[in-house]
Amino acid sequence: MGMPLREHPAARPSPPAPAGPAARRARGGPRLRARLVRAGFVAPVVVYVLAFFAYPLARNVVLSFQDYGIESVYTGDAPFNGLANYARVLHDAVFRTAAANTVVFVVASLLFQFVIGLALAVFFQGSFPLGGLLRSLLLVPWLLPLVVSGTVFRWMLDTGNGVVNQVLLAAHVIGAPVPWLNSVDTAMIGVLLCNVWIGVPFNMVILYGGLRSIPRGLYEAAELDGAGALRRFRHITLPLLRPVITVVLTLGLIYTIKVFDVIWVLTKGGPANATQTVTTYAYQLSFGGLSEFGAGAAAGNVLIVVAMVFAFLYLRSLRSETP
């Protein structure tokens, strides 16, 4: 935004200015103003990032090295305790369960969201009646507030009255109702069903866009050379889609690792921590009644570090893509 101002001749005063101090001011004025204008454009972003990103992040890091309990809230006294919060969190059996659950949740979510999203994107490549309408309808899960989706899934997955069990029972797929959200064995599947459903549209839209940018001619040429559909997909679609796939997976990972609403609405991390993730556990440590704000911050920071590593890898992959 600032660059054209500097380069553009129109930004300079056109008539030759008279000599003297007044002239210097006249020449310096616009330049200073241009610089101020430039700074003015940047300032809101800088202020925003500092106030709403850098400060909370820094505060959270500091907090994770403090013994910040319920008493500290009012008095503000929170002695530094080194790595005690991290040690407490890492030695906590619930945190370990939560960490393992988070890995399962993220990997399974990404895998199914991606595969289904890609399949749908390929499917919608073909043109058929109402294709556009269907494609827009598939976006609905993305538009719904997560709390709404979560609540609907909670009803659908109800053991006794849920539509999922009713349908499966009627189709004789299962012999007895499955306690989707109420058994330690199936609760994660229930939560995943909801999260995958929510995430598919995002994957589909981005991958669909990526597919559209692959030149049609390549497919025609390959077809002429006798390549079947599978070979065309493996040797044209996948390699050319790679940058888009990287974007989808990295962003998906960053979104998924911090999912809170879905789990909170469906199971609150239950039953017996079967769907507890690092995010929900960090919330419970801080705000769920325990008021261990230091430990909660430490758990949150573990997540931030993981997300940052992947964000960094993503940015690097972007740089290597650009010529």
């Binding site: 909370p56 992040l57 505060r59 959270n60 809230v73 809170f260 909170w264 995010t279 705000f287 949150g300």
Partner: peptide, 22 residues
């Protein structure tokens, strides 16, 4: 007792933000 619905709302956003800042 506890009001889970209400507590949930502040959850995600407040997660990494200290009560101090808020």
């Amino acid at each position: 007792p506890g009001r889970p619905r209400a507590r949930m709302a502040a959850g995600a956003a407040a997660l990494v933000i200290s009560p101090f800042l808020l």
